[in-house]
Write a protein that binds this DNA or RNA. Structure first.
Length: 614
RNA sequence: GCCCCAGUAGCUCAGCCCGGUAGAGCGACGGUCUUGUAAACCGUUGGUCAGGGGUUCAAAGCCCCUCUGGGGCUCCA
């Protein structure tokens, strides 16, 4: 907030015409105040973060000065022209009201109406202290300190029901436990134990494999996807969509990217997000780019009529979100400013339904995460009382995944959720990355007016489950990191078969076998397997090397022997060279792919016809 | 966002300390070779030394600013 303070003999104003759509209603068009301190105020964007805090600080500052010069009357005068970064009119009005209320017990407070073009006459006294300007910033949030006064407790819960309390400040309490290495690594990170770390390996890989790259012409954290990268991305998206729509029977929706900031619920959510949203101004109206799926979804569900008979209702959306993450924090695919996220929200009638729904999601996401062939650890964050009451239920979840979990017990409810969990991947340099998350939300439904009609005909608020498999881009990063980890431990680096951009490559030993190679490739392709043909004028060893560098899982070398014998020579990545008939190879691959998405090849089948991207 | 480091051919990098004609390998292009399980051979091409400014007779190099990337910190309702 910017304030211009003027000690005046008098101020006199007349409201002429409205300057905004909904100006403050007025009783008197004109008013005059004698012997007063006039505070011209501009409420700024940043004040929206903490309206009360700002109002309080401003009141203090004004009173300090009023006492010094000994005036009894304070006139608050809304004056937009002190700042170029104004708050929304609605918020500004609220904050000014707040300011007025804070001053009321301390002085005789008057205010000029908000949202009017006004003419005014002021007579400034002109003494040294009669003119003064102040900038008030929202007070620093004290959440951290509060957390310190009521710290969380941590324990490890094992699938057999054993509980091991741990103390993050004492590494010896968890370093030597007989639990999964990935969980120990997660706890180390949680405890802030730092290790020497290089750049994430996936950055080199994503470029070398022609998957994804930076786009310097865009903002930090916005990437370009090459065809091979896009095939992986689309496979992941299809997998998420199938899980939601086919297995969970979720309703698939789409909501806008852009939201008006003069809608109170949007403004509230955006303010909580603390300047980490993209803002833009069009025709004098401020917008924010969605940073989560909740905006449009909550709006849609608020308008929906839901009966208890229909619950639980699951809603799925796959959408881009935008977050203005700190530039220094955007490294490779770990954190982006523009990313793709599949979200599933479940609307439940009561806590019981919420819990069984939670378990169902847990089961599905476990299946999904296992399909990625990565190391991961699980952490629950839960209000202590809730945990104590539902221990058996927690155990039933761990039995599904058959892993121990870190459990953070929160002494009281600090967020809108009472329970959440994360699947955290461990990357090649020991860092952890949040992937899947499910949150049990007991508050938002009433806050946002998402109601269902119960048996008794009464409207009641839903229990909402928020869940996501995490950003698709981050998943790509972690799958690459896992490959790098395998390589470091002496195994062959590879992607899961279903995510490999090229699944089979056919290498004819000379151009004489090109037609035959094409024939075989098109047969394989008919089974929805991504296959290509290396028709370049290169030596066979060279083509094999290139295929291996691309991490292609199946390489077929085709020459006279194969054409005569009818048996193919198949080089399986990391395993060796095997004989297969075409049919047995196709059925072997199809079996491995089972129900995984089959995104078609979006490149020319002939290598010679492809541009090089990296 | 803050502090530190880096940016030289499409890619990986040398040259920079100590100012004096812009280098290599790979790739791409052309040719020879018709090839058997991780790099055939020969030739040609390739540069706003990230951008801008300054110092200097002379700047890839020294100084300043900006951009991009990396590391660390902070942040992650």
């Amino acid at each position: 907030m910017r304030i211009l303070l003027i000690h005046a003999d008098f101020i006199e104003y007349t409201a002429l015409e409205p300057a905004i759509k909904e100006p403050e209603p007025i009783d008197n068009k004109s008013e005059r105040f004698e012997e007063c301190l006039v505070a011209f105020c501009s409420i700024e964007k940043i004040d929206e973060e903490d309206p009360k805090g700002v109002a309080e600080l401003a009141a203090q500052s004004i009173m300090e000065h009023a006492n010094m010069i000994g005036v009894k009357t304070i006139v608050l005068y809304p004056y937009a022209h002190l700042s170029s970064n104004l708050a929304s009119p609605r918020m500004a009005m609220d904050i000014l009201k707040e300011l007025k209320n804070s001053l009321k017990p301390l002085a005789n407070v008057k205010s000029a109406p908000f949202g009017w073009y006004k003419s005014f006459i002021i007579k400034c006294k002109g003494h040294p202290l009669s003119e003064l300007s102040r900038t008030i910033l929202p007070p620093e949030k004290k959440e951290k300190k509060e957390e310190k006064t009521t710290p969380s407790k941590f324990l490890i819960l094992m699938p057999d029901g054993k509980e091991i309390p741990i103390d993050l400040s004492r590494p010896e309490s968890f370093l030597n436990l007989n639990i999964e290495p990935s969980l120990i690594q997660l706890i180390k990170n949680e405890a802030g134990l730092k290790e020497e770390r290089g750049p994430p390996i996936h950055i080199k890989l994503m470029k070398r494999l022609e998957l994804v790259d930076y786009e310097p012409a865009s903002d930090v954290g916005h990437f370009r996807f090459y065809p091979k990268g896009l095939m992986i991305k689309e496979s992941l998206e299809a997998f998420a969509t199938e899980l939601a729509v086919k297995e969970l029977k979720a309703l698939k929706i789409e909501t806008p990217m852009l939201y008006r900031l003069d809608e109170p619920d949007i403004a509230e959510q955006a303010a909580k997000f603390r300047e980490r949203d993209y803002r833009l101004k069009i025709d004098n109206r401020e917008f924010t780019l969605r940073f989560a799926g909740d905006f449009g979804l909550f709006r849609m569900m608020k308008d929906a009529i839901m009966s208890y008979k229909q619950l639980p209702i699951r809603v799925y959306e796959l959408s881009h979100s935008f977050r203005l993450e700190q530039s220094g924090e955007c490294v490779g695919l770990k954190r982006l400013r523009a990313f793709t996220m599949p979200d599933i929200h479940c609307f439940c009638a009561n806590l019981n339904q919420g819990l069984s729904e939670y378990k169902l999601l847990f089961e599905k996401y476990t299946m999904l995460t296992n399909a990625m062939e990565i190391d991961y650890a699980i952490a629950f964050r839960v209000v202590e009382e809730f945990y104590e009451k539902n221990k058996e239920w927690f155990l039933s979840l761990l039995k599904i995944v058959n892993k121990s979990a870190l459990i953070e017990l929160l002494p009281e409810m600090k967020h809108y959720w009472i329970l959440k969990h994360e699947y955290q991947a461990i990357d090649s340099i020991g860092g952890n990355l949040q992937l899947v998350t499910v949150q049990l939300d007991v508050e938002d439904a009433t806050r946002y007016g998402i109601m269902y009609i119960d048996e008794d005909g009464q409207k009641k608020g839903c229990i909402i489950l928020h869940s996501s498999m995490g950003s698709i881009e981050r998943w790509m990063g972690i799958v690459l990191e896992q490959a790098a980890k395998n390589q470091m431990s002496g195994r062959t680096p590879k992607l899961p078969l279903w995510l490999s951009p090229i699944q089979v490559r056919v290498i004819p030993v000379s151009s004489n076998y090109l037609d035959k190679a094409m024939e075989i490739a098109s047969k394989i392709s008919q089974s929805f397997i991504r296959v290509d043909v290396d028709d370049r004028d290169e030596s066979v060893p060279r083509k094999i090397r290139d295929a291996e560098m691309e991490w292609i899982p199946y390489i077929i070398v085709l020459g006279e022997k194969e054409v005569n014998s009818g048996e193919l020579s198949v080089r399986i990545r990391g395993e060796g060279i095997f004989k297969r008939t075409l049919d047995s190879l196709i059925s072997e691959i199809s079996e491995k792919l089972s129900s995984k998405p089959r995104i078609p090849l979006c490149l020319p089948m002939l290598l010679s016809m492809r541009p090089k991207f990296a």
